[in-house]
Simulated scan of single mutants.
Amino acid sequence: MSLASILVALIALLHLYILILEMFLWERPAGLRAFGNTPQKAALTKVLAANQGLYNGFLAAGLVWGLWLGNEGTQIFFLLCIAIAGIYGGLTAARKILLIQTVPACLALALLALGL
């Protein structure tokens, strides 16, 4: 397994974890801590968070699908989606999203481009 494939798999796991936080743990202590929410804010935004979680699950599924098929084009497409979503989130929600989503996706894209 290549270094790029390992990183892509880790990014898929990260997005699966984000799905769990946003869909199932949003109002629980782990979700509140992860997103810096109060119980009141979490209660008001739980439907939106669940929707975001579902999208993160689709991103994870796309990466796993690309790995399963051995199709770098599929992996590149979903990594670009993650990088762009991370840039938007970093600019509009919280800067740490750039480090959590965009940087790993860009690193994986670089590894794929280098054939590593």
Rank of each mutant, 00 (worst) to 15 (best):
T102Q: 07
A4Q: 00
A34I: 09
A50T: 15
W65N: 03
Y88N: 11
I20A: 14
N56L: 13
K41C: 03
G66Y: 02
G89Y: 12
L44R: 08
Q75S: 07
L25Q: 10
G57D: 11
L25E: 11
L19S: 09
L99Q: 13
H15Y: 14
I11F: 03
L69K: 09
L111Y: 03
A12T: 05
Q52D: 05
T38V: 11
N56E: 12
W68S: 07
G62W: 11
N51A: 15
L91P: 09
L7G: 02
L13H: 10
L44F: 13
A61Q: 12
N37Q: 13
N51M: 14
A94L: 03
A60C: 12
L14A: 09
P104V: 00
F78W: 14
I6A: 04
K41D: 15
A110G: 11
I87C: 09
V103C: 11
Q40F: 10
V47G: 04
G53Q: 07
W26G: 03
I100E: 04
K41Y: 15
A83G: 01
L69E: 06
I82W: 01
T102E: 04
I97N: 09
I82T: 03
I82N: 10
L69V: 01
L80F: 09
N37H: 10
L32D: 14
Y55D: 05
I82A: 06
P104Y: 04
Q101P: 03
P104N: 06
C81W: 08
L14N: 13
L111V: 00
L80W: 07
A93Q: 13
V8R: 09
G57H: 11
L25Y: 06
L99N: 12
I18T: 08
A83C: 04
G53T: 08
N51W: 15
K46Y: 12
L91H: 14
G73H: 11
L32K: 10
L111I: 02
T38L: 04
V8G: 07
N37S: 06
F35N: 04
T102H: 05
W26P: 01
T45C: 02
I82H: 02
L14V: 06
L99R: 14
